[in-house]
Design a protein around this nucleic acid. Structure first.
Lengths: 131, 131
DNA sequence: TAATATCCGTCATCAGGAGTCGGATATCTT
DNA sequence: AAGATATCCGACTCCTGATGACGGATATTA
């Protein structure tokens, strides 16, 4: 199956929320309650997004997360790669997997790789501003 | 993550193999050995593809599978849906899943659904003939 | 100092993907 | 008729990865 993980969904929702309130930082608790996302899960995601440079974090009371980029400068693909690592639709083009057993005899690899590239391009062209 | 399952990969390879030898039926064993696919797994896939009308099966010695359609009449999406059921990138548009918890508060659903549609269209336009 | 944040590693749970096993049925060759 | 080669089908195990829970440390504000 082809699908977006919950983590990816949560990340996109949270980023959009934070971007829509750039004047004041949004706390994990606030976002979690608003969208019904498990607190601990969301916390990890926001930490990751901060390390990757999408957000700026602020400790203490009145703290929370603020955007580090404009919504037009973040693509769906950027977010997916920050949360889930390199995106690959085919196992044989996935750097996290080992070599493909069928490599030599596989007749569909190259053509499917073109399809894969088109999908990734589409995700790479869609910014959070458009979402 | 976004990815094609092994089943989908195997199915595409097998279909392409069978289509390339339409004069004589291809047996499960022959295909499994050629591409290093587990026999039992491939057998199930070919049975499914037969029930869905992509292949014609022939029992007995010299039996095997023959194509039921032209390669240009089968799309990647057709195959995915035959093997894995309705394709959905978002859980909230997946008929196999229950209702989405965040439905009311989710701000990304509609725009992401447009992206999803584009990906599905791309898969629906790519035929086995092009692969 | 108390309250509210982020921060971080670790563990538990569980569904779905991937593959195995056993046995039934149909067809061709000898 | 017998044996070999096929497809056919259900049920089962195994295991990775997605998801989420817990405990505790650190930073900031009132």
């Amino acid at each position: 199956m082809i699908r977006l993980s919950k983590k990816a969904d949560y990340s996109l929702m949270a980023l959009k929320h934070i971007l829509s309130k750039e004047n004041q930082p949004s706390s994990t608790r606030e976002i979690a309650q608003t969208y019904g996302i498990p607190f601990e899960v969301l916390a990890k995601l926001l930490q990751q997004l901060t390390r990757k440079g999408f957000l700026i974090s602020q400790h203490g009371t009145k703290g929370g997360y603020s955007p580090a980029k404009l919504s037009g400068a973040i693509t769906v693909r950027d977010v997916l790669e920050a949360i889930e690592g390199p995106q690959a639709i085919l196992d044989c083009s996935n750097p996290r997997k080992g070599p493909c057993e069928q490599e030599k005899s596989c007749s569909v690899r190259r053509p499917l790789a073109r399809v894969e590239q088109k999908v990734l391009d589409l995700l790479g062209k869609t910014t959070l501003g458009e979402i």
